[in-house]
Design a protein around this nucleic acid. Structure first.
Lengths: 185, 185
DNA sequence: CGTTTATGTCAGCCATATTGACATATTCTG
DNA sequence: CAGAATATGTCAATATGGCTGACATAAACG
């Protein structure tokens, strides 16, 4: 945090002399990328918002349902850890998902204090519908970019994640994929 | 403890074979990309959050300050249009920015009903500090990806934007860049 | 002149998050 | 086994940042 001021005070972006050559923005703020990510994420989220609104659900419900569906049997504590919210915040949202039959809770087989979370068929269907909407947006975008775009996008997005958290996120994704693969349907 | 410590750092097992050849995952949801974007955006936003929290500002203040700084003299109505919020929502946030000396309002020279918005030097400094934090994240990520990554990322992010809105966003960015270039400092 | 426009403001509501305190099972441990 | 620790739930109060609706004011426009 100490070096923030150094950068702030020293680098005057985009001097009028058009000194920014070639690929530009070597030192100035990447306003274009910042704004593109802002708008891209808004529209990415917007896909799901429309469907959710019809069910009187919000983004909070989406996040919970998504991770419960991706990690069947996830413990409440782990879900809180992934979402980085408090149990009080999770409370209402989870109750509504349970009350409306999208999620069920079952006591842990070994540790009966645990309330393991599972998406019901209904919950699974909704999670899939939402994921497919967003997948379609990715597919369209990547198709426009062509070729190696998928792997490039994957790498880029992973690189944007805080380095200290990246391994955990990658592991989380890998584990969910692996478990899904081994889950008989 | 809530460990998500599954230590496999292996990248996603791509289905081998030619069924999902071209762009992979032709039919299934792209859970990996969805989650990577979720976590990437969270960390991207988190950079600014820390600074803002110290000033008792939130993301709403950031968004307003960002666009005011990028478009000096922007009208309230246009700001509402960019942010897609109501004037009532803008109200409190804008007042706090003005009260704390980050933004000033001036009557339009031609139409005195307008209250054109400008970032003060203080506001400009904060906007730049925040933008540079986020720029550093982009720079690190793009450096990791190497080569043509910046243009690829730009293209990808633009492609993720709702097609009907994309031209407007691109024009917005282009205009801000053009005006910044012609603005003498 | 009257209407429209640009903006502001008051009041109330909703969703989602927070902290803190406390309750209830259940498991673990000395 | 008793007591500590753990997993979860819940009540209450508060903050933030959205929303709608109604109304106010000043300036521009026709």
């Amino acid at each position: 945090m100490a070096d923030i001021n150094v950068l702030t005070l020293s680098s005057r972006p985009l001097e009028s002399g058009s000194a920014t050559a070639e690929h530009g923005q070597a030192q100035g703020p990447a306003f274009d990328l910042i704004e593109l990510l802002f708008f891209a994420y808004r529209d990415f989220i917007g896909d799901a918002d429309e469907v959710l609104a019809r069910l009187d659900f919000g983004r909070a419900h989406h996040r919970v349902l998504h991770f419960v569906n991706r990690h069947p049997g996830i413990r409440v504590a782990d879900l809180l850890d992934v979402l980085k919210i408090t149990k009080q915040s999770l409370g209402r949202v989870l109750r509504e998902l349970v009350d409306n039959g999208y999620v069920v809770q079952r006591a842990g087989p070994a540790d009966r204090r645990q309330r393991l979370l599972f998406a019901t068929q209904k919950g699974e269907a909704l999670a899939l519908e939402l994921a497919l909407l967003q997948t379609r947006r990715f597919a369209r975008a990547l198709h426009e970019c062509g070729g190696e775009a998928r792997e490039a996008a994957r790498k880029f997005l992973a690189a944007m994640i805080e380095p200290s958290a990246r391994a955990d996120v990658e592991a989380l994704i890998a584990r969910a994929d692996r478990e899904a693969k081994n889950r008989p349907r």
